[in-house]
Design a protein around this nucleic acid. Sequence first.
DNA 1: CGGCTTATTTCGAGTGTCGACTAAACCGTG
DNA 2: CACGGTTTAGTCGACACTCGAAATAAGCCG
Lengths: 420, 420
Amino acid sequence: MDSTHTTTRDIRRRNRSVLLTTLFKDGPLSRLELSQVTGLSTATVSTVTADLLADGLVAEAGQVESAGGRPRVLLRLNPEYGYLIGVDVGETGVTVELFDAALTRLRAIERPLDSVRPEPKAVVKEVASAIADILAGPPVEETESDGLGPVDPALVIGIGIGVPGIVEEAGTALVHAPTIGWHSVALAELLSEAGVTPPVLLGNGARTQAQAEMWFGAAKGVRHAVIALVGSGVGATVVTEGSPYRGMSGSAGEWGHTTLVYGGRGCRCGATGCVEAYVGAEGVLARLAEATGEPADDDEVAGLARLIAAADAAPEGPEARLLDAVADELGAAIGNLVNILNPERVVLGGWAGLAMGAARLPRIRFGARRQALDRPYHQVSIELSHLGPDAVALGAATLPLAALLARGGEAPRMAPGRPG
Amino acid sequence: MDSTHTTTRDIRRRNRSVLLTTLFKDGPLSRLELSQVTGLSTATVSTVTADLLADGLVAEAGQVESAGGRPRVLLRLNPEYGYLIGVDVGETGVTVELFDAALTRLRAIERPLDSVRPEPKAVVKEVASAIADILAGPPVEETESDGLGPVDPALVIGIGIGVPGIVEEAGTALVHAPTIGWHSVALAELLSEAGVTPPVLLGNGARTQAQAEMWFGAAKGVRHAVIALVGSGVGATVVTEGSPYRGMSGSAGEWGHTTLVYGGRGCRCGATGCVEAYVGAEGVLARLAEATGEPADDDEVAGLARLIAAADAAPEGPEARLLDAVADELGAAIGNLVNILNPERVVLGGWAGLAMGAARLPRIRFGARRQALDRPYHQVSIELSHLGPDAVALGAATLPLAALLARGGEAPRMAPGRPG
DNA sequence: CGGCTTATTTCGAGTGTCGACTAAACCGTG
DNA sequence: CACGGTTTAGTCGACACTCGAAATAAGCCG
């Protein structure tokens, strides 16, 4: 009962949000340009930007020479308004990155996790200490630092965390990550108990990565897209109306576990014939082992690289045949997404997706073309991801920034000490 | 550049919309209850409802006895505010239905189409004359009519039309319906040239049917759903955040042409292994013919009914085996939808879907369970459609009503003569 | 330095919601 | 049958917001 009910103040917040967002997205703009782009009157732009300037959310960014008249002064989101922290909780380690308010990366820290199935407590401890460290200053080994001393925790706008599992929003956010043995973990609360103060936002790692791809990568400016990630496993993020789609409880996008071959290869999910069992790196290498009779490589990344190299070397060999088949199948699976979702763009990412895409993108596209209906196929473009897997932390940092922009930069700041 | 930019008048429109919508959805309510449900102050509810009453959009609906105080007077959407027309352009004929503003069906007319691939002009002519007839009065054969004389065309709020194809919104709405040989038909404009005056809204027939299911049927009140229609062909409507998802150009939901068996049976779409080729009525009957060696029935409906009857009669016979297999496959295909979209509900409809669902729903559910991941499966309910295929016209009439509610019952009425 | 051009700010008008108050409508009771 | 008591509906003033138009600021050019 709150999406309803609008008051005159909401419209100010909304207009603040609109102005802030276009300033962030479309670089420095003058007030006049803002007025033209957003449709607000110059009068409103003037008063609202005055507020935003006073709140420190917006800063002037020089002025542009004019053709005889008063020069326009450019405005932009003030990078010094505060800091954003993005955290990537991966299966092998934790990455914490520090950004300014304009999402420029300032510092990064990586911490390996010793266990393959780390206890939530261990992860929380690692994340909390890494956050403290990154705020304290640049890592010692970097000589002469980054010209930035310790960062006041009160200046942190928010912390976004990408986790390798499903985030279910039910009052408090619960993390379900079977691959690392997590069930219903209230990560945000645990972090808060560990002394991490500012607002913490959680998101599925694949989805934060997709968010980064939407803001800075191959899906920039696209409203309907699918970000398909192929690694050892296979997943996808569905983007509808410009924002990642969560479904009812946050688990939408399990493209890897849709049927490609009814009754086919067994999948680790328990079902048979899943896309993942055929085109995921693990599945591909298992098929290679079956084809050649040699045992599969322990290191999947190296194994897949070797497969692709062998395919390049011997276009008629079993490796090439397998790679072609995988490209066909991956294409068909992408075609399924195109048929169901009618997206404007499909971005193929993930380390295995990038590797196979680099080697066989035309074939993948052709596979999609065979499966998809003509009309949707001709309206979609299938591209490779621009950002690597390290975009998870960037995408995570996006979460608190998106929240800030959406609320027009007002209130919800736990920590005191800021005027706005 | 218009989703941005809000003025103080928009908030009034929005609040009108909120009040109108809750009055339509949650039956008669008093002003006080409206205030509590919507969160608006009683002051605002009072002034806004006064406006709505003056505009004729809302009417009083008796009062409820009180426990000692002033009785509350109930308000509801005024059914007599105007009329809605829903049109179902099917492959075999045209149905036109007349509703009051509260979507109570008043009259219906059906007109067969002589050709299987009717020219747009022929359809337009038929629709225009049917609309004129339904406005003129009840069909003669109904004795003593419905107590309602001819309806003034100026009182028609809008006309919604469900078409058997894709509706692409690009300035003017273009209809692409390959199955009846239509390509880029500007149906609304053709109708306007044929003298059909009020606003005409177009929608894909499957989607209007889904809309009806959302408002009145098995998906009532659900925000994330999939309405799966299985007939001769197979399609689905994806409902996200409470409204049908169109994708980039309106063709989302082509579930029937996703891979079930990679490289499997040929599909009429040109690809192989599509869901439709396996579980669509045409495909099922073709498989039956292959299994028994007898030629397929000409009448698909009768053929499928016979198949199900035979399966019931002989649980070990080839018909039963086929039906079981189809149920398993249909379940897996539904499981795919569950994995990708994480819906709250899947509604199985379409004449063949209803028939097979009535016979094998538990098996279909089990098939979905095998394919879907545990978490999303346990959160979804798979139900049979409550409304028959005749819900297309009802759903189509929904379109202009939804538009009316969304704009708070203001302006856009071509025809003059109404105060509002 | 004064006109010219262009960008930004100010001002008054028009609308909106909201809280507090007042008016309406019905009940039960002496 | 009048009169509190109680619950619902309408009214009024305060405050917030956007917008168009006019005023002001800030450069350029001759």
